[in-house]
Amino acid sequence: MTGEKGNKLARVIPEESLNDKLASEPQLDKTSQKRIGDQLRAMYDELMQQPVPDRFKDLLEKLEKSSAEKTK
């Protein structure tokens, strides 16, 4: 089974490179891992692209102002 591209089936494969307590746990094959990873990042990127709500800019500005006044 050489990394044939068409084979997308998730299999439980032993992976000797994994250390710690992973040795005894089932492992996803690389293709399935990549798919999960890609979807995860796509979802996360979409959230990252959202504009920062004004409340956070306002909050930090307010804090800056109030501390500036205190030091006057």
Binding site: K8, L9, L22, E25, Q27, S32, Q33, I36, G37
Partner: peptide
Amino acid sequence: AVGTIKSRVNRARFRLASLLNVDDVDDLG
């Protein structure tokens, strides 16, 4: 511990794969 994180990530991926039927490939099975 680092090993705990690795184990959690591994289990999370495994669970997601089964929830999302990543292994259920219609065109090839």
